[in-house]
Design a protein around this nucleic acid. Structure first.
Lengths: 186, 186
DNA sequence: AGCTTTTTAGGACATTTGTCCAGTAAAAGA
DNA sequence: TCTTTTACTGGACAAATGTCCTAAAAAGCT
């Protein structure tokens, strides 16, 4: 995750050393849960290799996929991490996954260690906000079919790597309907 | 907006004086646009009195309401403000409105003036993220009827103050459908 | 107050999307 | 490689939601 931080700000050797000392590592097997709902999310993970998805359950018990994260991306229940409240989401490995981990205390240390980390944290949070905003807009403005098309055009990775059943709820539709959409598009 | 910042952090008199020197004021008449789509959003406003709504157009030209802001809340096209790209949203006054304004340069000055402002900016961005996340989850997990009920129970203010036509698109449904839902609920 | 405009409600019908299901294809495990 | 499990497709029908429209109610204007 070092390089992501460095792409935002020019950190000194000391600052990077502090970061290095705080990062830990873990691997997760395909299918395993990294976080279960009703736990507080106390760490942010960064994916070195693999794919994660976050999902919650609706009132019928169906799994609704909230988001995916790929290599070189962060994942957490940010809402739970930020508020300290229990997460509604489960985070699951879709493949065997290798992770870097920054826990709450470590991130707090970083933040307290100086202006630069505060600024970087703010900017990264801003970017997360912008991404979420785009997703929100796509739900208000587009149909499921249009969201699928958008994904085909701009996020081919999702189409290639994610099972359709997960994509469907991510797009806000049922697998049955996604099948219909795919038939129509081709 | 001073008191919002102060609720997050204990600022010194100097820090608050700097803020005071950067805030400007403006009033907007009911119906007027504060920001039009395709402009870059260069300021964050804070509502002293009144109500704002942000909306964009879908492919058919219908207005889709993105969010509302009430007294003592911030409003902006945050996505545009953050990225510097053109906004997709219009921001409109739903009533005569009195505003405090912080423009991009002023906020940048605050941020550069010290750690505390960076930290406060990060925390406020985090809270915006969490709110947006909740809204996103409600779109993925609930029906339009359930979102309306949720609004009745937890955000009575919306029901009382916002015309139903705007509420409908905010909830992701048509006015016709909202009318059906209201009939069923009562 | 009276006129005009805007907003809301709701009927009739069309379209979209979901539910349930079974058959097939693909993937995982032994 | 064979078997078992899981994922995907698509038919038939049902339910949810949208479209178009008109009348009534409410709000705004002079």
């Amino acid at each position: 995750m070092k390089s992501v931080f460095q792409s935002i700000q020019d950190f000194s050797a000391d600052e990077i050393n502090l970061l290095d000392s705080l990062i830990t590592f873990r691997t997760v097997k395909k299918g395993e849960l990294l976080l279960a709902e009703n736990q507080v999310c106390n760490e942010i993970v960064f994916i070195e290799k693999g794919i994660l998805r976050s999902f919650f359950l609706n009132h019928k018990g169906d799994e609704i996929t909230n988001c995916f994260a790929f290599e070189n991306e962060f994942m957490a229940s940010f809402a739970s991490f930020i508020t300290g409240e229990k997460a509604e989401e489960n985070i699951q490995a879709l493949t065997d996954t290798e992770l870097q981990i920054l826990d709450r205390k470590s991130l707090e240390k970083l933040y307290q260690s100086g202006f630069n980390w505060q600024e970087t944290g703010r900017k990264l949070t801003e970017l997360e906000f912008v991404n979420l905003h785009k997703r929100m807009v796509s739900f208000q403005k587009l149909s499921g079919a249009q969201r699928y098309e958008e994904l085909c055009q701009n996020h081919q990775k999702y189409i290639q790597l994610i099972p359709l059943q997960y994509l469907a709820s991510y797009l806000g539709i049922t697998p049955r309907h996604l099948s219909r959409i795919r038939k129509a598009v081709i």
